[in-house]
């Protein structure tokens, strides 16, 4: 029950006003989800690998566990700092991501791992998060975001979106809707050794897509298959190191509007978010057709 937004700058090199754009777009659809807000940002200037954890202010034991787990996996610490409800840890690490990620998960609540991806999510509105995490100052190439109205699960920072595809660096998802074959899909993935951190259906989509990417499929192929495999109502955005994509269910029960020009692609639940990027300008927007998907990526 929520609103989603995503932006992809087409111009080569990044250094775009990514944070500012997403803060504004999410503020535009905050009415769809007042409980929590989140951003998955593909940032400039992350050195090494960035890990972000949810750690309570006084929980020094968790910090000790994180440091021990990092050392145990041969990751060297570059920096560690507290931001809001989270601790940001930049490390040098060159091993396999999945076992590393699961070990980190067992040390503390891990939000994301990425060489460019950084997920910032918390209870509160877009502007409130911007104050705490200075999101609008972040520059980068692309990103997705989410506002949430909690229905079945609690209002907690870790229940906010975006969801990182646990075990896969630099993959994130935001989702509006409800996956009705959640347990069936989850059991399939669990049988293949994947671990889930929440009962949230959006985490499932993230892992589902990332698994396909890891097996050598393109984002496009993964999204095409997702429209068949996932049951229920959904409009979701997925982001990887190189690009973003969307998929929409056949019932079109959840809205999605898109704007594209030479410089950027912007997608959101409602046009009102897109207009935040271009105040006062009528936009030639389109509504993706039901049961469709599309991707944009930076060709390397």
């Amino acid at each position: 029950m929520c609103g989603i937004a995503g932006i992809f700058f087409k111009t080569q090199g990044s250094n775009q006003i990514l944070g500012r754009a997403l803060v504004d777009m999410l503020d535009g659809c905050q009415h769809r989800g007042p409980d929590s807000t989140g951003f998955a940002l593909y940032e400039d200037g992350i050195e090494g690998l960035r890990l972000r954890f949810m750690v309570a202010e006084d929980d020094t034991a968790a910090l000790d566990r994180i440091r021990a787990a990092l050392a145990a996996h041969g990751a060297t610490l570059r920096s560690e700092k507290r931001e809001g409800a989270t601790v940001v840890v930049d490390v040098d690490y060159s091993g396999e991501i999945r076992p590393f990620a699961y070990a980190m998960e067992h040390a503390a609540k891990l939000v994301s791992i990425g060489s460019t991806l950084d997920i910032i999510k918390d209870v509160g509105t877009s502007h409130q998060l911007d104050e705490t995490y200075r999101v609008s100052e972040i520059r980068g190439s692309h990103g997705i975001g989410h506002v949430r109205l909690a229905t079945e699960s609690d209002v907690k920072p870790e229940a906010a979106h975006p969801f990182w595809a646990t075990g896969f660096a630099d993959v994130a998802i935001v989702h509006n809707g409800q996956i009705t074959n959640y347990w069936k899909m989850r059991r399939r993935l669990e049988a293949r050794g994947f671990e889930f951190r929440t009962d949230n259906d959006s985490e499932l989509i993230a892992v589902y897509v990332a698994d396909k990417l890891a097996r050598g499929e393109t984002l496009e192929q993964a999204l095409e298959q997702s429209v068949d495999d996932l049951d229920g109502t959904f409009s979701f955005l997925v982001s990887t190191k190189d690009g973003i994509g969307f998929a929409k269910d056949r019932l079109a029960a959840k809205p999605m509007v898109m704007y594209e020009d030479d410089g950027l692609v912007a997608i959101a639940s409602e046009e009102v978010s897109l207009n935040r990027l271009f105040p006062g300008k009528p936009l030639a927007t389109t509504e993706p057709a039901p049961g469709t998907f599309r991707t944009w990526s930076r060709s390397i």
Partner: peptide, 12 residues
Amino acid sequence: IMGADDLVIKVE
């Protein structure tokens, strides 16, 4: 009204 997010707009 397909969900809580639409419902809030309807109430408004």
